[in-house]
Amino acid sequence: MANAREVLLRIKSVKNIAQVTKALQAVSASKVQKAMQAMYRTRPYATKAWQVLTHIAAQPGRRTLHPLLVERERVENTLVVLISGDRGLAGAYNANVVRFVLKQFGDYEAPVRYITIGRKGRDMMLRRRQEIVAEFSDLPAAPEFEDVSAIGRMAVEEFLTEKVDEVYLVYTDFFNMVKQVPTVKKLLPLEFEDEGGRVQDFDATHQGPEAAYIYEPGQEEILDEIIPRFTALQVYQAVMESLASEHAARMVAMKNATENATELSGALQLEYNKARQATITGEMLDIAGGAEALAQS
């Protein structure tokens, strides 16, 4: 059995750990609330913007509409924007999204390059010898669209200059406090989705298959403005979702850590009591033995 004093020291350190994790849990709890609110505030706009983009992409003759809609015949290079956290102690949050991205793009048909957001993702990808073309870290705690729009613009730029032939976005989708799911979304070229088939349906009944959108002022001006901006907006929303996910994951991880520490300190306390009791019993036996010896002499 361990020495009582050693056990006492361990109890102390475990209790210290519990205190730290509990504080971190409280901080994360308030951060996750704020991040969630911010995320829900911007979600409607981002969702609608995405719908508009899929509608545009679903138009007949879309291939000639705008360079960002054109699917390249051969995919020679792929770009992946990976969103992770700057800090650890968030359970499996960072590891999950990195494992996910490697599973998706580990042995992809074309060479894959990465833009990473968040220090943890960058470090893990570097350790696995992946090619990183740009990295962004130390985003503000509550990013505005302007803080991340450069990232989206960069992705658009890489695509337009034909350095890459497709762009994917990998982030952690926030469902609720205990469920966050790594997700991949194809950003460019914009993909046709069945959901966006309404334009054609309408044309078929009203105007024949050729007609699509009416543009005010002109098609080129409006598409040039909308498509890059709405694409950058998707990156922004993904950052917001990931941020909420990170805080939620950290909060849950810290809650578990606090519970484990409390449990451990309970077990150690029991061990300490036993050790203490054993010492006392030993001393009593010594005294009794000594007294007995004296009485006999």
């Binding site: 545009i56 334009v199 009416i214 543009y215 403005e225």
Partner: peptide, 8 residues
Amino acid sequence: NHAPLLST
């Protein structure tokens, strides 16, 4: 039932 339109 307006025709599809996109405008700034």
